[in-house]
Every structure is written in C-alpha cells, then in structure tokens.
Amino acid sequence: MNKRMTCGLALGVALTGAAFAQPRISAQSIIVNPTPADLTVRVRVDRDPSGTGVPNYRAGENVTISTTVNQDAYVYLFSVDPSGDVTQILPNRLGGENFVKANTTAVFPPAGSAFRFTVDGEAGLNKVLALASTTPLDLSQLSTFRSSQDQFATVAAKGQQEFAQALSIVVNPVPQNNWVTDTAFFNVTAQTPVQTGSVFVGTNVPNATVYLNNQRLGGANVTYSGIRPGTYPVRVQAPGARDYTTTVTVRAGGTTNVNADFPLAVTPQEPGNVVLDLFRNLLGAFTGVQLQDPARSAYDQKVADLQRQGYALQNTRQTSGGYVGTLTRNGSTATLTVTRGANRTLNVQVTENTQYRY
C-alpha cells in the first residue's frame, strides 16, 4: 500500500535477549512468537474497532491506526499492500514517540496532528503489523530511509513470506517472552468512475441565461457536460420575457435536449409600417414587391435556428393553418408547427421526442 502524509507522529515497542524456538510464520498474523509472552499488543484500524473484521477504504481516504499494550513497550508498525510492498510506518521521520505506556492506546496519526495517513495504493487486502517489544529493536538490516526526503522507511523484503523471515532475524536476539505481534486487516476498493451526462439548452432568442438546479450554467444554445445523473429543475431567463421553466432528467453517457421557446415580440418602429415590421420580426424578408407568407417566414426562421443547434430538416408540409416540419438530431426527433391565429398572430411550437436505450 502506498501512503501519503502531510505531517507526522509515531508509535513504538522493542525487544532484548536470547532466542529459543524460531518465530512461526502465519497467514493471519504474519509472524507469531512460538512462546507465550506476558506482553500483549493489539492493533486496530478506525473502521474496525473490534479488530475482527476487514473494513473497506477507497483510495484517497484516510486511515487511523491505534495500538494498545499491557506493559510499557516499543511498538513498530508495518504495512503490507496487495502487491507485497512493505512500508515501515513507525518509527518515521514525522516525529512523535513510539514508546507506549502500559494499558494506554496510542493513535497514529495522533489527534490534532497536521498530517493524515492516506490510502493511495492498488485495490486489494492490506495488512498492518504491530510488533511490540519491551526493549528497542535494531531495524537497520530490515528497513532504510532511501533519501533525506523520505518520511517512511522502506523495507527491503517483499511479500509476506520474505517480510516474516526478515522479522525473525530482527527478533532472534531478543528473549521470546519480551516480544509479541498482532495484525489488522483492511481492504482497498477500486474507485468507481462517476458516470455523468450532458444537457443541451436551446432558445429562439439571444442573450438567454440558463439555470440548472438553481445554479447558473451560462448562455443558451450550449451543451453542458459533466452533470450527475438525476432530475433537475431548469430555468431559462431572456430579456423582456417571462422565465421559461421545466424539469430535465440527465442520464449517464447521454445528452438531454431542452428547447426553451419564447414568444417573438413585435414592436412597430414607424407608424404606418406595422405590417412591414411584423414581417421583418418574423424573418419575413421579401423579394422585390412579392411579400412572403408570414407563416412560412416564421417557419423558415425557426428551421434555421434549429439547424444551428445541429438539427437536420427531414420534411416540410403545408397545412390549412400553416406549416409543419420534422427535424432530427442524434436520437431526438423535433416537430415544428407554425399556425396562423386570430388577429394576425402566429403560433410557433416545437415538440421533441427522445428515445433512450437501456
């Protein structure tokens, strides 16, 4: 397990004496004293105070390690990651004492410290070994600080088997009733990529502003990406118009379209030219003296607006009341309807149907 620290403290315990039976290598505890000792040590990670489980952490999360001894002792902490890399957590160069008083619990990192012990390795089972000794241990043949910048010492042994054998050499000169070990386990889970979706908001007027979930996104006729899946309120503001409001459902990996159509205002500029201004505001350009049908002008204007948004015109048909067209873009089909109303008015409506595969 790779680790990141942003400041430090340590824990500790050591050994002395002559050796008898060889320490036993154990899959559960890595290395076990073959002789019962009065000294005991317990090591735990913060998500499993009982020490009997295997809690999960995600890469980037912080881990707190605690250790308790029943006698004054020096505690040495090591971590073994899923690839077999071994790191000496305590002692380290971040400061603090690795001497623990009897019947007290030492925490790493300690409360109020300016650094954190952070999971930053591959997914899989990690082990934390606590080795306690009533006298200090000589770790010079086991671990070294490779540079002056290293906060933690690197253990030369790789994998649990080599590490256990190296520890056996370290504790060999120490009387067997003066040292003991314990191991805690935790699992690092793989990061699950966050799936996001996109929203395209189109309008038929300039200078509109889009709000999603009451957060300002920016202008209209833009695709906004990186949105978490879910259903959100949408509000579109346009100068001089009532806000357009709706809801939108964002789906992972897809783009949801929102068409905010505002009524097209007609403001006569000169008395006597009301009809001409109406045609101009509806893109009612005329050739020579032949004026185009205002309904067709409005239809052509809206088609051009939708084409700028990426739609492709499929067909157009004239109806008794105006014009109807079908446009498509990706998996969406939009129907544009322009109808003549009372008092020389036009109604422009866009409806859209989007099909999603699941």
Rank of each mutant, 00 (worst) to 15 (best):
173 P>G: 10
158 K>H: 15
141 Q>G: 14
124 G>C: 09
188 V>Q: 11
57 Y>H: 09
126 N>D: 14
152 F>E: 08
28 Q>G: 02
302 K>G: 02
160 Q>K: 13
43 V>M: 05
76 Y>M: 05
88 Q>C: 14
103 N>I: 04
286 F>L: 12
93 R>M: 04
224 Y>S: 02
74 Y>L: 07
234 V>Y: 08
32 V>L: 06
200 F>G: 03
50 S>P: 00
276 L>T: 14
320 S>C: 00
253 G>C: 12
181 T>D: 10
324 V>G: 03
327 L>C: 12
65 I>Y: 02
172 N>G: 11
117 F>D: 13
246 T>R: 07
48 D>P: 07
299 Y>P: 01
211 Y>K: 12
121 G>K: 06
157 A>C: 08
234 V>L: 15
222 V>N: 10
152 F>T: 09
320 S>I: 01
169 I>N: 15
338 V>C: 10
126 N>G: 06
187 N>T: 08
281 N>V: 02
167 L>S: 07
135 T>E: 11
84 G>V: 09
147 S>P: 00
291 L>W: 11
30 I>Y: 01
259 N>P: 00
22 Q>C: 04
238 A>W: 03
279 F>D: 12
182 D>T: 07
64 T>M: 06
28 Q>S: 11
226 G>T: 06
24 R>F: 05
156 A>T: 13
218 G>M: 09
218 G>K: 12
277 D>I: 03
98 N>G: 15
168 S>P: 01
96 G>H: 01
352 E>S: 11
64 T>Y: 05
357 R>T: 13
173 P>D: 09
327 L>I: 12
192 T>S: 14
296 R>W: 08
32 V>C: 03
88 Q>F: 04
259 N>E: 15
54 V>T: 15
116 R>F: 08
87 T>W: 07
305 D>T: 14
95 G>P: 03
292 Q>G: 09
294 P>N: 10
311 Y>L: 06
59 A>Y: 04
339 T>K: 05
11 L>P: 02
32 V>I: 09
162 E>F: 05
118 T>E: 15
352 E>N: 12
311 Y>F: 15
210 V>I: 09
172 N>I: 01
35 T>G: 02
142 L>I: 04
273 N>E: 13
2 N>T: 06
122 E>A: 15
111 A>H: 07
113 S>V: 03
118 T>H: 06
88 Q>W: 01
251 R>H: 14
248 V>H: 12
111 A>F: 04
174 V>G: 15
303 V>G: 10
212 L>Y: 08
171 V>F: 06
292 Q>F: 07
291 L>I: 11
1 M>W: 04
29 S>D: 14
92 N>P: 00
326 T>V: 12
333 T>A: 15
229 P>R: 09
144 T>P: 00
194 V>Y: 06
227 I>V: 10
94 L>I: 01
342 A>E: 15
203 T>V: 13
324 V>C: 03
255 T>R: 09
46 D>T: 02
324 V>S: 07
167 L>M: 15
206 P>W: 03
291 L>D: 12
346 L>H: 08
104 T>N: 12
152 F>R: 02
52 T>Y: 02
